[in-house]
Nucleic acid binder design. Structure first.
Lengths: 336, 336
DNA sequence: TTGAAAGCGCTAACAG
DNA sequence: CTGTTAGCGCTTTCAA
């Protein structure tokens, strides 16, 4: 068992209260006693036990993070941003993944709450139908959504404007002369973002007087999009451009198209969403609607910490929309 | 303040001890009282406070994880594997990154230890010269190294055989007829793996009677490898194949080579190390020495939990070497 | 500036 | 099967 504040006090010849004071507000301890205590701390290799502290103080300076998966770079980057910002602000991070299983969200949050995290950052399948968020609301635990753009204006969130970003991506395609643009998307029910992006697609198509095509919804980015793309072998059956709801999907699609003997972008153009860093290193570069994932994480953490600060709901923007950009890339060709 | 075991006890008309019992060994409580308590728990929305529990029990069922960065998919995958396995075993995960700053390793571990994690999984810059590991040893906190292959046989670790994997990668190149093979590597002092891989390179070159070339050491995978590759414009000055110490570096190199007007693999072949999933989706496929990152994480966690189980050092393999594979890919051409 | 004392939520003897 | 009790490490009044 590691040394406790008690042993330090004994060794330094002071009371535990004084040791505690040195730890928490060093100014309130005389230089002399401080010296003795510090010696004792060093000698014993004392390290404060946060469990004791948290128990007593009722806060833990720890935040919980729930993401769908770390296999998608986007969330890894976001977590990276969260952790970095957390370290700056002296917060610790407990982390959980749900593997896109909506039913695991509640369990994840419950676990975090048992650890008495001061707040939670999460990306849920569907922000407008999430019992998990209701729990958080009820218990009065501050939380910040990432990537989700909730309808309820009351919920703190950090994301890009998914609909607008998708619109801009599709507009980029139309600007290059594409008219037959189809959307390839992950399961709508696993991601409210996918739905918003689909709306953005519709917006853009309508705005340009183009006929929207039925979206192709694939199960998982396991990469098995082939079955859905078979029809593309027939030039009549395929769009000139494929807009994918995320970059991983775009990459999988490109691979499968290649297998079908189709060339990107000669036979079909592909555009993604997310702007994962690797897309920019490939050749051709993957065109994409870029969201600043690491920054999303960083802002989310700062927002959360601010919310933790003020017990009662207060100032500060609620729904934060970060700027997206459109990355031009060789996977999209000029069509005329 | 959320309800405590005390309020549950009051509401159910039993003692706190009984509530605790229901929580920890339900079998030891009569069905009748169990019913009453469960009702009270539900009514109050009670959730056990792990801080109290941990304080009392002296263990937290929480593990700490320290990785260099999450920007490298490899570590994200590993963390993913850790988290998944942890959830299975009812453990929670606290996570920290060091951004490859060796001096941050100690701080990270100290923080985790203050949280009284039961054990730590980490990837350090240099396992054989890490004060951090010494601290862990001294305090008797179980830990498992990932990716690092420590010299000290006493330290638990999970990795591939870096040297052998690098050897196999280079042997693959020689088998394809390459003789002028050069290594491009990250900073040796930021990664002991890089050194081991370099040794593997040397092994393979010597084994095939080839003259090793001086390794090119680049600062960071910021992607700025260009400066180091300038000389390659001259066909006399460039190797026929470039073996990179990791896939990110390989990708950056390929991009920079392209910028120099060189074609991969026609003008120069490129091989990586790690086997990141995206390498397989690209065209051409990135040839690489593949390590099972998610599995490394999973095995590390199981190993750690086992170590936590037995207070005193015990059975079980210490240095676990998982199998690597060589991924053939279009970034390497047959040279003859 | 310091100490004494109470208590955060929980578990683990020990009785009964 | 259940209750009583003590105490894990720490902070925080309240006094001195």
């Amino acid at each position: 068992m590691p040394p406790s504040i008690k042993q330090v006090a004994l060794q330094a010849g002071v009371s535990t209260a004084t040791v505690s004071r040195l730890l928490n507000s060093p100014a309130s301890v005389s230089a002399e006693t401080a010296g003795k205590i510090n010696e004792a701390i060093a000698a014993l290799g004392f390290r404060p036990n946060f469990n004791g502290r948290n128990l007593r103080a009722g806060r833990s300076r720890t935040v919980g993070v729930v993401v769908p998966t770390l296999s998608n770079t986007v969330f890894a980057q976001c977590l990276q941003g969260i952790e970095l910002a957390a370290r700056t602000l002296d917060y610790s991070v407990m982390f959980t993944a749900t593997e896109y299983r909506q039913e695991d969200e509640a369990a994840a949050v419950n676990l975090l709450l048992s650890h008495r995290v001061d707040g939670v950052i999460l990306t849920v399948a569907d922000a407008s139908a999430s019992g998990t968020l209701d729990v958080l609301d009820r218990e009065g635990i501050p939380y910040v959504l990432t990537y989700n753009q909730p309808q309820q204006a009351s919920r703190l969130s950090v994301s890009v404007d998914n609909r607008a970003a998708a619109h801009d991506a599709v507009a980029h395609l139309t600007a290059l002369g594409h008219t037959r643009i189809q959307m390839l998307t992950g399961q709508f029910n696993a991601s409210d973002r996918a739905i918003q992006r689909y709306h953005g697609y519709l917006d853009a198509m309508r705005a340009h007087g183009l006929a929207p095509m039925a979206p192709i919804e694939v199960p998982r980015h396991t990469g098995l999009t082939s079955a859905h793309l078979q029809a593309f072998s027939d030039p009549q059956q395929r769009p000139s451009a494929l807009f994918c709801s995320n970059d991983l999907l775009a990459l999988a699609a490109m691979r499968d198209l290649r297998e079908l003997g189709l060339r990107v972008p000669e036979d079909i153009s592909v555009m993604g969403f997310d702007g994962i860093p690797l897309g920019e290193m490939m050749s051709p570069v993957l065109a994409s609607a870029v969201q600043p994932s690491e920054q999303i994480g960083e802002v989310a953490l700062r927002t959360l910490v601010a919310a933790i600060g003020q017990t009662e709901g207060g100032a500060g923007p609620v729904s934060q929309t970060l700027a997206h950009t459109i990355r031009h890339g060789g996977t999209v060709r000029v069509f005329s």
